[in-house]
């Protein structure tokens, strides 16, 4: 049986929305090779750049947050972002584990 032990992110998103913040939901929708978090892992980001949850083990979060802020700024409803193996520069965003992931980011709106 596949279990999800991590389903409180929606409550948190709702409480952010109640305080009139714009909220973006980021979800891992596809993975190849070894990826740090499984499909369905979620993260939320608000317009201030605060975030909760995770879509990787800290490898690509900063980039996802940047993309989410961009999405809010341009008022786009959603976007698909792909991350591949990182190059040798350790400060580059990417997955050092050698995997690939696709993250779907979407605005939560009325």
């Amino acid at each position: 049986m596949k279990k999800s032990f991590d389903e409180t992110i929606f409550e948190e998103a709702n409480s952010w929305l109640k305080s009139n913040q714009k909220v973006i939901l980021a979800t891992v929708i596809q993975t190849w090779g070894s990826s740090p978090r499984q499909i369905g892992s979620r993260m939320i980001v608000n317009e201030k750049g605060d975030f909760s949850g995770s879509v990787s083990g800290g490898c690509v979060e900063s980039n996802v947050i940047k993309e989410c802020l961009e999405l809010i700024k341009n008022n786009n409803p959603f976007k698909k972002i792909e991350f591949k193996v990182s190059n040798e520069n350790a400060w580059d965003v990417g997955l050092s584990c050698g995997g690939e992931i696709i993250i779907y980011i979407e605005q939560i709106n009325s």
Partner: peptide, 26 residues
């Protein structure tokens, strides 16, 4: 995602029954 869907997810999570969320990614 519409806020109504988000609220329904929260409600359904507390009802403790299985369900799924579908998203058309296009």
């Amino acid at each position: 995602m519409k806020i109504e869907i988000l609220k329904e997810i929260i409600k359904k999570n507390s009802s403790k029954e299985q369900f799924a969320v579908l998203t058309n990614i296009t």
